[in-house]
Design a protein around this nucleic acid. Structure first.
Lengths: 209, 209
DNA sequence: GTTGAAGCGGACCGAACGGTCCGCTACGGT
DNA sequence: ACCGTAGCGGACCGTTCGGTCCGCTTCAAC
């Protein structure tokens, strides 16, 4: 039996690429730098990710998975708060508060998906390229799907809440999430907790019947 | 007397560059494309803007000027609303509503300053380059100054309002502005007015004593 | 009509990009 | 011990980048 490929290579490459893409922006990071910092050969990288676009899509895919996990965890903890299940009101506040905690983490540089879409406004993914080939999974598709799913989570909880104008409330809570993310993208870390506290307080006020 | 330089050249170049930078992102637009679309010679462009960084800074500078003008105009109109001067409450709502109108304009692609800072997270402007030279006015400085000034406007109006917790209210209104801008950067134009209406309604509720 | 600067735009430069190919080393299976 | 493949990493390719230089045309001033 021939030799086997080393396991974990893909994860190592993807980990390095994710860190660099997130910290410096996708366009600012070249493939050669990823290869150098990952300590792997060029062959290996292009074997796992045939093009840079594939690597970027995998980066966003992984980031989305982690965000969804963190959100689920926050909802579970909110459910176990004190005694028994928190209602949808508490869960909505928990969602906003979880984003707030994320935003205050050092090194946090904004939402990976919103940052990507800001960096590549011309990425109209899904449509085939001019040469007829269509990329396997385009980064912009992954980003938009994450954002849509995240919004639907809030939409669902608001529906459970049974409020008079659910659309309006969904919009307002979603505005808060958007705002927290974008503040993290340009505001000094020390100033961010002011915004976080203001957002959480406002969320509590909004979900209160 | 020798021939005179053609007037308006700088404005034409800056106009073309601004449109392209805003629509496609700064990194995605090369100098050659600006030159082609402006119909001017390479010499002329580099005469007015020695480096791309200078051109980008001028683009943001001009965008800031226009935003400040639009905000001033909105405040003046709010002051003349119905009969006589609107109080700070009405002016704060007017500021949010003006951003809302901007966001609903077709072709609007988000805040130029927030988009730039998302695209160039490593632009630590103001500090000299490694070769000792310091750029005249770095783009990131322009962007950060605009954002700081915009926030101070809200801060001042909130102070006039004489509310119990001015810091909290300033934060919350600033969150709304942030959110409107970022939604415009990735959301479908048709869906935006939902967010705008929600934000304006929330602003009115926040400034109501 | 002559002259000289203004200005268009192509040639060119070094660097960096994404991506391909391949030679060499190192190590696991038999 | 001997294969043979996995894998590191450099050579290389075509393209594009920001930026410089210059030849040629055009047109205003005299």
């Amino acid at each position: 039996m021939p030799r086997q490929p080393a396991p974990g290579t893909r994860d190592k490459i993807l980990g390095v690429a994710s860190r660099l893409f997130y910290e410096h922006g996708v366009r600012a990071v070249g493939m050669s730098r990823i290869i150098t910092e990952a300590g792997t050969g060029k062959n290996l990288l292009y074997q796992h990710f045939p093009t840079k676009s594939d690597l970027v899509a995998a980066y966003l895919e992984q980031a989305g998975e982690r965000r969804r996990d963190a959100t689920r965890r926050a909802l579970a903890e909110a459910g176990n708060g004190a005694a028994g299940a928190a209602g949808p009101a508490g869960q909505l506040v928990a969602v906003v508060a979880e984003v707030g905690r994320l935003v205050e983490r050092p090194g946090f540089r904004g939402c990976a998906f919103r940052n990507y879409l800001a960096e590549f406004p011309d990425d109209d993914s899904g449509r085939p390229d001019e040469d007829g080939s269509v990329p396997a999974v385009a980064p912009a598709v992954v980003a938009r799907e994450y954002l849509a799913g995240s919004r639907q989570l809030i939409e669902g909880l608001v529906a459970e809440l049974g409020v008079a104008d659910p659309v309006r409330l969904t919009e307002q809570l979603w505005l808060l999430v958007d705002a927290l993310y974008v503040q993290a993208a340009y505001r000094e870390p020390a100033d961010r907790h002011l915004g976080v506290e203001a957002a959480v307080a406002l969320a509590q006020r909004l979900v209160a019947v």
